[in-house]
């Protein structure tokens, strides 16, 4: 069953259409990518799921039921524009945000201590937020996002502002939360960062959904029949065969070929085996970035 169902959501700001009949289904327990360039409408959609704004029309179902104010306790949200009260103590701050989400005080304090320990921040508990480095503040924000153990986690550009080490730690935590059964909605304009961890994606451009599906399927759908070939004799040039393929590019160690329409890779391999000594033969799938650029270009023309 789909955990979130978004049906024909329309949102208009001041004469500018931010979301144009957007629909999206997020199955439970996966990491779902919401992709698109800046200004495409991602944040508008996320704010609607968070009940920060209301859609002009359309509806959002959570677990099969329309969103209700009490559902905020089931959602954890790390916005792109995020910050903390600088003058508050770290521990108090986390407990305050947890209690706003409906966690009772004792539980909030207990979980806060566990999480601070997990991130090696225990000694900072009674320090003011402004004394923390930016990376540490980001960790505190992450703790505040997940401390009420929400079933749905929404991260808007989560890795911005993290250094590579902390970004990796954050990624591991997100994967761990997924294993524990949380559904994770991941919004970013950085296509590559998502490719590795998202199972399904929705691509939004100019307020419209332009692509939807599982990452693997989308890549298959957009493949260009490009193959990279390595020979044992690295200096040797690849023989041409106009009926089977065309050579796209030759580099020092490998050759890039494009298979002609209707040609199976099996036939190419057997033909090549007769003429050269193959060291490697593998398909090059397009990156999400390439797919995105191609899709947008196709829409424009």
């Amino acid at each position: 069953m789909n955990f979130i169902e978004i049906k024909d959501v329309v949102k208009q700001y001041d004469g500018h259409l931010a979301l144009d009949r957007v629909s999206m289904d997020v199955p439970e327990g996966i990491i779902y990518g919401l992709l698109g360039p800046n200004g495409a409408g991602k944040t508008s959609l996320i704010r609607i799921i968070n009940m920060i704004t209301k859609p002009d029309s359309g509806e959002v179902l959570l677990g099969g039921k329309p969103l209700q104010p009490s559902d905020v306790a089931q959602i954890g949200y790390l916005p792109e524009e995020r910050g903390l009260y600088k003058k508050m103590k770290v521990g108090d701050h986390i407990v305050y945000l947890a209690r706003l989400k409906g966690v009772d005080k004792a539980t909030a304090v207990q979980r806060m201590n566990q999480w601070l320990e997990r991130f090696d921040l225990t000694e900072w508990r009674d320090k003011k937020v402004e004394a923390l480095s930016k990376g540490m503040q980001q960790k505190v924000q992450f703790i505040a996002t997940v401390i009420h153990e929400p079933r749905l986690l929404i991260f808007d550009e989560p890795f911005s502002g993290f250094d590579p080490v902390n970004a990796e730690q954050l990624k591991q935590e997100i994967l761990r939360l997924k294993d524990q059964g949380s559904t994770i909605l991941f919004s970013t304009h950085n296509m590559e960062s998502v490719e590795a961890i998202c199972e399904r994606i929705t691509l939004i451009n100019s307020a419209r959904v332009v692509l939807e599906g599982s990452v693997a399927a989308i890549k298959q759908e957009h493949k260009k029949h490009l193959y990279e070939i390595e020979q044992v004799d690295r200096a040797a040039t690849l023989p041409t065969n106009d009926t089977l393929y065309s050579i796209e590019q030759t580099t020092r160690n490998s050759t890039l070929i494009r298979l002609n329409d209707g040609v199976a890779s099996r036939d190419v391999i057997s033909w090549l085996n007769e003429h050269v000594q193959l060291a490697g033969f593998h398909e090059l799938l397009p990156s999400m970035n390439e797919i995105f650029i191609e899709t947008v270009k196709a829409l424009k023309s």
Partner: peptide, 16 residues
């Protein structure tokens, strides 16, 4: 202050 701190979006995801 809340606006320049960018905390406000976190808060309004928990309350109105």
């Amino acid at each position: 202050e809340e606006k320049t701190n960018r905390i406000v979006e976190v808060i309004v995801s928990s309350c109105t």
